[in-house]
Structure formats: C-alpha cells, structure tokens
Design a protein around this nucleic acid. Structure first.
Lengths: 217, 217
DNA sequence: TTCATTATTTAGACAAATCTAAAAATTTAT
DNA sequence: ATAAATTTTTAGATTTGTCTAAATAATGAA
C-alpha cells in the first residue's frame, strides 16, 4: 500500500511519461509544486519500493508495478469525474480538484460498484479514456491528438473544448472537422505537436492538441 | 482548515461526549488505537486552535467551533453511507470503513449536491440522524434509545438490527414493540442504560440500546 | 575543450504525528 | 490520611515529507 503522497508522484510520473521518457526531476518538481530536492528524496523511496526505475541525473520510468498502480489511480480519478458530472451535475471544469481527492480512496469494491453504477463508461468528461479494472484502455476509434505518436494518421472528428475562442482558433489554423492529419513529431520540451495537414506542415501547442479528437486511419 | 488527523480526533471526541463529558484522554486513546501520550499532544494542539476546551488531567469538551466541525464530519460520513447503500448496493455492515475515508473529502459543493442527489435523507442506514447543512438534526419522532437522556419517556417502535439472536434477546427482556419505557440513568463508565418498563427497573447495555428505536412521549 | 550555466543530488534542518520511558497528578483502597 | 494503583503528562526519539544551501554532474557555448 502506498501513501497518498506516493500515489500522487506515481500518477504524475505516469502523465509526464506521455511527453518525455524518462521523466526528469525538475519536470516533476514543477508539476507537483515542490522543490527538486524533495522530488529526489521521493524518487529514491519509490525506487526502493520497486515502483520506479531511477537512475541518478537521468530521470525515472515506472516499473510494471508502478505503472499498474498509476493506471489504477487514473481509473479512479476519471470514474469519479464521470460521477460528479453525470450524477451530481458538476460542470466539466469543476470536477478536477475534488476528483484529485477522491482518487485516493482505498476500496476496490467501491470502485467496481461505482463503475457499474455509471454503466462502465469508457471516457471521462474531458474525453480521456478510462482504463478498465485490468488496466486496459478501450480501443476507441477516436483519441486526443495529443495522445498520438509520430507517423499516426487520422481524421479530425471532434473537440473536447467548445469555447468560441478555441473553435475560432482552430478554424484559423485550418484544423476543421473532417481534415486528415499526420503526426510528424512530438517535441519533448513543451509537448507541442508537429503535423501535416493537406501537405502543409504546422506546429500546434500541446494545449490545443489535447482538445482535438482524432479518428485513427 | 484541519488536517485529516485533527478531524478524526474531533469526530471521536464528539461521539464520546455522548457517553461521558468531559471526555478523558484514555477513552480517546482506546478508541483511536493510539497511546495516551499521543492523545495529550493532539489535545494541546486542538486547544491552541480553540477547537476544544482542554484542562490538564480533567479531559476535554468541544468548543462551538470544534463541535460544528465535528458535526459536519458526521454529516459527511452518514451521507456517504446512504450513498453506498442506496446507490451502490453495499450492505449496511460494509459501509463504515469506506465512509470513514470519504468523510474527509473537502468540498462543500460536493456534499450539498450529494445530499440533493440522495433526496435529503434524515437518517443513515444504521438509523443515525444526519444533520443538515446548518448542523441541525431532524426532530424525528423516533430516536435510538441510546440517544435519550434521563427522564425521557417513549414507546418502542422499531429496531435497527434484525438478527434473530438480537430479537430473541429483546423478547426475553420484555422489550417488545409498543412497550412504554422511561430512562432512569445513563451510566458513565460503560454507557449502559437503566430504564423502567412496566414498573420494572432494568439495565441494558449500550450495544443493545443503540439498536432500539423509540418514539418519544 | 574549457568555462559557464543549468539540472540534480547531498547534507542537514524542520513540522506533523506518533512512540517509549519516566515523572507527575489523580483516584482508590486500606 | 496515607500508600498503592491508575491515569495523564512530559521529555526525548522516530518517521514521513518537506525545505534551504551547498556540492556535484550534465549540458551548452565560445
């Protein structure tokens, strides 16, 4: 069993792994609002518990054990978000902080029952995939653009942010529904994505990429 | 804002206050599964924060501030129990530990929405009253016998424990539905209750008293 | 390649909550 | 009322997670 704090570190390492691998000490420190020295201390502890592979000065990756723990926390977080929005009428932008607390409640029975109560949702209110109890993500036809890897191809089929400023921005970039795109590269330093749209090369920020939904191939 | 641990102490002092007032250090230590020395440390801390009135060697009582904090935790605990039983099909004896964790989630919006979602329940699955958001308990016609005070009179109208052993026990004691009772005294040292049933004086344990529901007067 | 900059780690300290062992206060029994 | 037993508190140590300041390693620029 891990402490609340250990769980948070694992979850954050899991998320940061999608942008850069291994994950660097400073990246964690920034995300978790703490000092690099504190992160180093915790990485040693997690390494002792065989939850991460930690190499001095080189950063960390999750072990299988660490990864499945992290995925389970993500699962709980996203299920609670669905609960808050679907059952308690929270708005999608009100749920994060509460889910951040709820994700640490320890009870498998609770989570399995909640999953059932919510009718086994596959995505959360932000369009993120919810892993099942075995840690498997549904192979939905659509994914966030920010989750794609170089050479992935697909079609824009939706957005997960509906503010008019955002939609106008997309229009200006030519990223409209139905357009085919191909990932060229995901830049490590800021997570921005270089892609090809109608022979046109362009770069969009991770922020924007996160809110564009793609149907692969 | 109080820590998780401080909240637990307040809650336990609140509950123990129903049996004896002020609450003694050792009573808390026993209930919270810790050492008397640790309790003393925490009582000083809570006293500094003006959540309890602490007199060395004499025990503690809750201040108004401490009491309303404690009642709010009790409210959360009991609402979550209703949720677990009514919505997630937990059995009444499976909910305690999980509710013990959920009661510490910090979000007024969450609790108000949950209360509404559950249709503003007045009692939890164990028959305990759920305070409203102002800390007021409904004045239900029935209450647990263990919640009554000396000289209170009433009629037995139900039980909150339905095992046949328990029901047979009640029958043997003559504590059957419809019988009128009057509280003589609540013994401090074990919370047992001395009462009058049809001119007959008797003593029942707190455990038994907790599961007998009384309609007052 | 060597120096400067940046990133990371080490060393030592601190706050929260707990513990053990010993001291002090209170209660009980004679 | 005094001694013995019990309860409570104090003193000092421990663990977890954090911090600052200083040291070390890695990276980037001339």
């Amino acid at each position: 069993m891990q402490s609340y704090t250990e769980e948070n570190y694992l979850k954050i390492i899991y998320h940061l792994s999608e942008i850069s691998n291994p994950v660097l000490t400073n990246a964690i420190a920034e995300r978790i609002q703490t000092k690099a020295a504190s992160v180093t201390d915790m990485l040693k502890k997690l390494s002792d518990k065989e939850l991460v592979n930690y190499v001095k000065y080189q950063g960390v990756t999750l072990t299988e054990k660490g990864k499945s723990t992290a995925i389970n926390i993500v699962r709980k977080h996203r299920l609670w978000e669905v609960f808050l929005v679907d059952k308690l009428n929270f708005k999608w932008d009100e749920v994060h902080d509460v889910a951040e607390e709820l994700e640490h409640i320890q009870s498998n029975l609770l989570i399995e029952r909640l999953d059932e109560f919510l009718d086994f949702p596959k995505v959360d209110p932000h369009g993120d995939l919810i892993p099942d109890k075995y840690g498997n993500f549904a192979d939905l036809s659509f994914a966030k653009l920010s989750k794609l890897k170089p050479k992935d191809k697909g079609t824009i089929t939706g957005v997960s942010e509906h503010s008019s400023t955002f939609l106008k921005h997309l229009e200006k970039l030519g990223l409209t529904l139905g357009k085919r795109i191909e990932i060229i590269e995901v830049l490590e330093f800021d997570g921005s994505v270089e892609l090809l749209v109608e022979q046109q090369k362009m770069n969009i920020s991770r922020e924007v990429a996160k809110h564009i939904l793609i149907t692969k191939n």
